[in-house]
Design a binder for these strands. Structure first.
Lengths: 229, 229
DNA sequence: ACCTGAACACCGTTCAAGT
DNA sequence: ACCTGAACACCGTTCAAGT
């Protein structure tokens, strides 16, 4: 997939003014794609709307960025380069916690990334330092290198699941929704008294929920690294 | 959404033989939908192919099952009813582990469920007993009821993430794939020596990986329920 | 040599027109 | 009253035909 951009330092937007027109402004297209993803998720970005929104042509996008998969991973790479590598301090377990929190913070405002990661498997290259730091901390606790990597994968699983099940703050749990009624009815039928009691309980913010679970997960993973189980 | 099925105990397949034709065989349609999901995931099921595959009409599906969302949740419900409630034994922590393993085992052969859960949020009503049992175990360890429910959510997050990042056994990690090369190059550029070293390391089966992580996660969650942190 | 309009083969969803 | 063929408004992707 040849992706050379003839005039890299070109101005924003479609061709304008005199002179040779900018045939394809890669950065501008990716910016527009990112905005579309931010607004409508992975289904809100269509090749057609991207083309017209970026002032270019459908076929041009296919030529320069490949298919939709190519566009998505290009956006992911571009975005992940902006993730700052912040220095971590404290005990290894403190750092593992900070890493989990950091990944969550980076991804929570960009829900579409989860969809991309799910498809391709490419973690943005700009986020690799999270893995590096985690593995270092795990090794410091005594984990075998390969176990340290797998421990990171476990943390990643928890974070990913939390992002997936995250609910928007405004959508408070309604007991009157048909879904809730159905669950409640099924739970009562099967004599699931605990589920019945708590199905409507307030769940706090997703962030608090995530953090509390993360603390437990990291504690468990750290203990496993120390060999205590 | 009226979903009455006039002749519930109808024969399989489309109308055949003499007599009043079976206008719409709900169970048959859902079976076909389940097969399609099993083969091609959530994108392998299209309303058109479902209609022709089940020997019915596009509009009939919309009439009886609603839109695609409705079809998916109907399939999910039908499937979740087949989940057997197995008795759990051992310590509370043992049971929490068994629940995590049980959820994984149920879902791992049906990757499409993850996609449905991601969209609607409806957990199949047949799987509610997992929550019931987990909450009971967590309470037994000393957790406040609401914390027990949130602990279950944390376990669920880990399982969900593991299902999402799961790789098929046959797709062994290739170092020659362009993605692997790109990651490796980026890691080297940033001096991430640990990532560089382990990116090609064998990762074992996804099942082993899941289990080892689950043990650590459950240990951490159980400790949190006991109030030890 | 480079670019793209127009086509292809699909989608999910709806409703006027049939029986 | 019940059902559905045919249409609507989209998709992702490709390539013959233009300049």
């Amino acid at each position: 997939m040849p992706t050379r951009s003839p005039t890299t330092g070109s101005t924003n937007g479609p061709a304008r003014g005199p002179g040779r027109p900018v045939s394809f402004n890669r950065n501008h297209v990716l910016d527009v794609a990112g905005t579309m993803l931010m607004n409508g998720g992975i289904e809100g970005l269509t090749m057609r709307r991207l083309a017209s929104g970026a002032g270019t042509t459908l076929a041009a996008i296919y030529r320069h960025l490949g298919d939709k998969e190519g566009v998505l991973s290009a956006v992911l790479d571009r975005f992940s380069e902006d993730i700052p590598r912040t220095p971590l301090t404290g005990t290894p377990q403190d750092r593992m916690l900070a890493i989990g929190q950091g990944i969550y913070a980076v991804l929570v405002t960009r829900a579409w990334i989860v969809d991309i990661l799910r498809r391709g498997g490419s973690t943005g290259t700009g986020a690799l330092w999270f893995a590096e730091e985690y593995i270092a901390a795990a090794e410091e606790l005594g984990a075998h290198p390969i176990d340290a990597l797998n421990s990171y994968r476990a943390l990643w699983n928890y974070v990913l699941g939390a992002l997936l099940t995250r609910v928007e703050p405004e959508q408070t749990l309604e007991l009157d929704t048909p879904l809730a009624r159905k669950i409640l009815a099924a739970a009562e039928r099967d004599g699931l008294t605990r589920v019945t009691t708590y199905v409507g309980a307030p769940r706090g913010t997703s962030e608090r929920l995530f953090r509390r679970g993360l603390i437990a997960v990291v504690a468990g993973l750290a203990a496993q690294c120390r060999g205590k189980q």
